[in-house]
Amino acid sequence: MMIETRYTKDHEWVRLDGGIATIGITDYAAEQLGDVVFVELPKVGKAIEKGGEAAVVESVKAASEVYAPIAGEVVEVNSAIEGEPANVNAEPMGAGWFIKLKVKNAAEVGALMTEAQYRDYLKGL
């Protein structure tokens, strides 16, 4: 079965696979941010609440927070983007992922937008 990607109004994506959710920012968010020059990721083991700060991403111009769209415990972070922040722009939906969370409540993922819903949401912006 194909793993579905869900989206948030803050332009993050979430991919749930066996209780572990991978989280990143969307193509749209990466485009809006511009060239990413710095990424700050949480420590593995950190418990993050839904809406809590999951990462900080900085472009040449400004710093932005990435908020966790779901609650969970950080089980892995993408250290590669700390060394090469440009990966976030190059492949935001793939190699530019931010963190993996052990999900507390899978229903929170189900409540997020589907790809079709997110596309409609972008049209309205």
Binding site: G34, D35, V37, V60
Partner: peptide
């Protein structure tokens, strides 16, 4: 503020 090639 920027053109398509971006600030960097």
């Amino acid at each position: 503020v920027q053109f398509p090639q971006g600030i960097l």
